[in-house]
Design a protein around this nucleic acid. Structure first.
Lengths: 158, 158, 158, 158
DNA sequence: TTTT
DNA sequence: TTTT
């Protein structure tokens, strides 16, 4: 019904930019969000939260954000379930960003990422080695199904 | 830095009420939050999100909420890491509720759960069998450390 | 940079549906949002917050919401400034809803308002008497300027 | 029922720190929050939103925030009504901050403002001239009523 | 009344 | 697996 998440934190690493079979850009990164235990002193705890960004925003994020940068994310919490190599169900939580704001640097370059231009469907998209990470996006929410012919597991970028 | 989550959804089951060794009440339940793919029609997808509530609110939630009830949760997203039986690191995402609102029923009974009375430290607390669920709270954020002497794994309510 | 508001409350009256000169639908209503003073007992205070909804959502809201209904609003806080009859600058705060959820009634009819169909540009739009309320929308954010020729103050629906 | 506002923006001026009759600190400032009209280019619009902070946070804000600084506010939207000099009802919208984060400067000084120490009831509190601004807080939500004897309009700091 |  |  309603699902809204707002976070501010720092990137633990450079964002990773990938493309689905149908050519949609997806960027992902982890945000280190410091917790503050009210009352008790001296304690510093951190939540490491996975963020996913789609389409034009993905490319802007990949271009302007790096490890250590401070960013604000406004999106929704999503729980994905998949089967790992051992055939066990694994649940992954991530925040699907609707907008990402860059909070660190100078005034105008890439300060925001919403409602921008861009959007050229990329050719020559990179084909990274399959990592041991979960197969993130078997379903591309932005794919135009009619023209995505041959989606095979092996073609997925994750 | 900033970590805010707001959800509306329905309980997938009755909340479970437990107590830490130091006597702090903890309630947990899962919220089914319907997603709505903008643009595409007919699709209904659901995120199942784990919620945790502490102290007085835990007891109010356990008393007034049941499976199927509609509720609003305002809290923060937390990622916990623990080692499972096989010795693997497992990451669990959950929303730690600051407030829970009951949206279904009549006007005044248990309509809200913030800043209420209650709070009697419970005697005869139930000792449920250990489920296969993750050992949720090795660290009780509300424990007064000075008087919690013998925390052993076997005493944990999860 | 970031501007996010989430509210749950009850409508103080039926929503009002209007149309701008360029034919864009706008619905407005007031949400009574109960406050709860933490700590102190027995006090009930209420914030009356003006909500504005545009386009297809405006028509859905006007069709399904009535006085007394419980609703959740997700949007952004906007401060508009205008000159009143006495020539004084007046500031009006309102929440521009991105989505409105209906929380009261049955399961499926009009339960949500995002990404729906509708959208037929209405003919025979009502021309309500000008109230003493502020001239709400001299700027229609959805107007296609090129085809809106003769916007005069007298044609505004507010 | 639920009332949550999250904002990121820049201070239009230094915060003003005042004290109620009962000695509670209150800081107020205005946040300039840039809007971004999705789709249309080149337009930059700004909402000027009044923020109010109470107690220890008020003093931290007054100490560390200045005009032009970037800050994140997490709080609730409140509508106050009062009668102005001409005897007209005036409505004022403001965000009562629960937490304020400082986003501009260096790593550790005053980076956050929640759950901090401080809290010494201030002596020699300043008695600013009454401005033409609205009489902000006839009701001090943190006052211990039993010991606040003689609240008169003239003693209010606003 | 307004910030970069 | 983690950021300042």
């Amino acid at each position: 019904m309603l699902n809204r998440v707002i976070l501010i934190g720092r990137l633990t690493a450079d964002p990773e930019l990938r493309y689905t079979n149908s050519g949609t850009a997806v960027a992902s990164f982890t945000l280190a969000v410091d917790r503050m235990r009210s009352g008790q002193t001296g304690e510093r705890q951190t939540d490491f939260i996975n963020i996913v960004v789609w389409q034009k925003q993905a490319e802007i994020v990949a271009q302007y954000l790096q490890k250590g940068r401070l960013a604000a994310v406004d999106g929704r919490l999503q729980i994905r379930t998949y089967d790992n190599r051992e055939g066990q169900k694994v649940r992954v939580a991530e925040v699907v960003a609707e907008t990402v704001r860059f909070l660190d640097r100078g005034s105008d370059t890439g300060q925001s990422t919403a409602g921008f231009g861009g959007g050229t469907t990329p050719m020559n998209r990179p084909r990274p080695d399959r990592s041991s990470a979960p197969p993130l996006y078997e379903d591309d929410p932005f794919a135009d199904d009619s023209q995505t012919i041959d989606i095979s597991e092996d073609d997925l970028p994750f």
